[in-house]
Design a protein around this nucleic acid. Structure first.
Lengths: 341, 341
DNA sequence: TTGAAAGCGCTAACAT
DNA sequence: ATGTTAGCGCTTTCAA
């Protein structure tokens, strides 16, 4: 069963078409510089034999793999609840396949996996890497640095040193947060709270900064730390209501957090948005459109970010040394008004 | 930047350690049959040079890739809403990495992608394939058949012919459905409805069969077709209430469908479970534990199924022709009682 | 425009 | 136990 009958080689095709291996190779790789009748004959032979190039042999000489690794370093359950990753993956997948590149998925569940990932990246299996969800203390960037493989990060990496030259794609977390808080303020809310994401990720830290930009040195009790999950959002909202019963606006660090917050508000008998206006971040439709009330949120184009990451990486891959390293991209966000604020 | 300084070869390591390439190869691949002092010297040289084997060269001769393709053929948005896929991916990823295999993710968005996937599988990039979410009329099985690559399916494939020898992992959809409906009946419900999944998938069809096993030739208006999504569940539930206002039990084809159904029931002022008892399928925790009321459901161990698929595939890969092809596995389900039924 | 030939870096017989 | 050697299937100079 696993002993696939040995597939035809270039040699076989050449024999069949009555030409040399080199000619077949040329035809298979685009056919430039080969005269039409020969091209036809070779194509014919390829079809008849069902020839498919052996990628290993090709890579051995070209040193290209037409494959890109996607590293998702999210040990916790978030990958499995937050449509965020799936959406970004889709964007990446679309862009890669449009350029005939394959997507090798590397899920890491903890420290143990880091060495494996590093080895893999260094092993020359892939031409580049797309890396996600780094936390401040993450050892992965160092390991990737060591692998000397072109890399684009999803979200601004947090480590302070040498991040100058790291290429990343992110949305304007801080600006989006400011818009959200300003919107709440524009609604006449004065006790505006923020439920943060995990602050060891820049996206969460930046959103907190944006909140502070607008709120200044507001009552620190209005800031509650959380973790981007619905359950975390519930916990934080409950704590918030206990601490500051007069809260009238909540900017949640992401939609999932807002989802949890809404649940607790309902349980506690607060009307949304009448008593408390709530606003999220991301705009993952399955969530924002289906909460009750529907969720006002800061939209970022997640799938587009994925596509962009892939595009940036592919550009550096095809560009080679000559091409200038592309610079990072920060996409704008837009406020999407729905019912909750 | 992309011009990585050419990495050291076996040759270089051999020179440095003062041994032959063969010896280095032996050490790198486990070191059997090489005397300790030499092993040490080689290890040393490997470390000093930062040698990492070139996988392409290795594959070229071993004809192994230590990589497995995961094909997810779900054109619609379901992948991005249903934790199901993410969970199964996690199970697969864990098992694969435990055996030093890589996961190549192939997402297909439509017919156009099928040819690409087929070419990839036939191209000898991977040792085997794990394939999901086939629909009855899906051309993929045929293409995969053509690729002559060991394959394990996620969920019983639907095409009638030749599926004898297809290896798959599934849960006991029909039995689980029976349990669900019996449970509702045991609660004294007599007007028990079923909101189906997309009936061109065997999982959905089997659950409907299970429903019929218990209900016999019940009022056909109690069966409403849907599509495994929350929105679909809403639509179906609304239709159901219009058709059969006296419905007092609902078996939804999956948790997401149940989620939508619960929402509509609440909107229409029906109490759950007092007026209408609701039961789902899957038990994806982020959903079932967070609905109001929490969702009674039929549990299948999704992550375990993923792991099992990978294990089965790896077994046929390492077994070679000699080993008997493993047979399909159908896992039992268990009813998880929560508040909704 | 086509062909001949030299590797890419590795493993696996086969010798020693 | 270690070394020698012959490829794996392909691309790519180089010559014709």
């Amino acid at each position: 069963m696993s002993e696939a009958v040995s597939r035809p080689t270039l040699e076989a095709v050449a024999a069949r078409a009555g030409v040399s291996r080199a000619t077949v190779s040329r035809v298979v790789n685009g056919g430039d510089g080969v005269r039409e009748p020969l091209v036809e004959r070779v194509r014919q032979a390829v079809a008849e034999l069902g020839y498919v190039p052996n990628q290993a042999a090709r890579s051995l000489v070209t040193r290209r793999h037409d494959a890109v690794a996607v590293v998702i370093a999210e040990p916790e359950t978030r990958i499995f609840t937050d449509p965020f990753f799936a959406l970004q993956l889709r964007g990446i997948s679309k862009e890669l396949t449009a350029h005939d590149n394959q997507l090798v998925l590397l899920l890491t569940e903890g420290r143990d996996d880091h060495a494996r990932v590093a080895r893999y990246l260094a092993g020359g299996h892939v031409d580049g890497a797309l890396v996600f969800s780094l936390h401040l203390d993450d050892p992965l960037p160092g390991l990737i640095e060591g692998a000397k493989i072109p890399t684009v990060f999803g979200g601004r990496p947090g480590w302070s040193d040498g991040s100058k030259d790291a290429v990343y794609v992110d949305c304007d977390n801080r600006g989006g947060a400011r818009d959200a808080v300003r919107h709440l303020a524009g609604l006449g809310r004065t006790r505006i709270a923020h439920i943060t994401g995990p602050l060891d990720q820049t996206s969460a830290a930046d959103r907190l900064d944006g909140y502070r930009d607008v709120m200044g040195e507001a009552d620190p009790r209005l800031i509650v730390a959380s973790d981007f999950t619905p359950t975390g959002g519930e916990r934080a909202m409950a704590e918030l209501l206990d601490r500051c019963p007069d809260v009238d606006g909540v900017f949640a660090a992401n939609d999932l957090t807002a989802l949890g917050a809404l649940r607790v508000l309902r349980e506690r008998g607060r009307r949304v948005p009448e008593d408390v206006a709530v606003i999220g971040f991301d705009d993952v439709l399955p969530v924002t459109e289906q909460t009750a009330p529907s969720l006002t949120t800061v939209r970022q184009d997640i799938e587009e970010m994925g596509r962009l990451m892939a595009r940036l990486l592919l550009r550096t891959l095809t560009g080679g040394v000559s091409a200038p390293a592309p610079s990072s991209v920060v996409l704008p966000t837009t406020l999407v008004r729905r019912a909750s604020a």
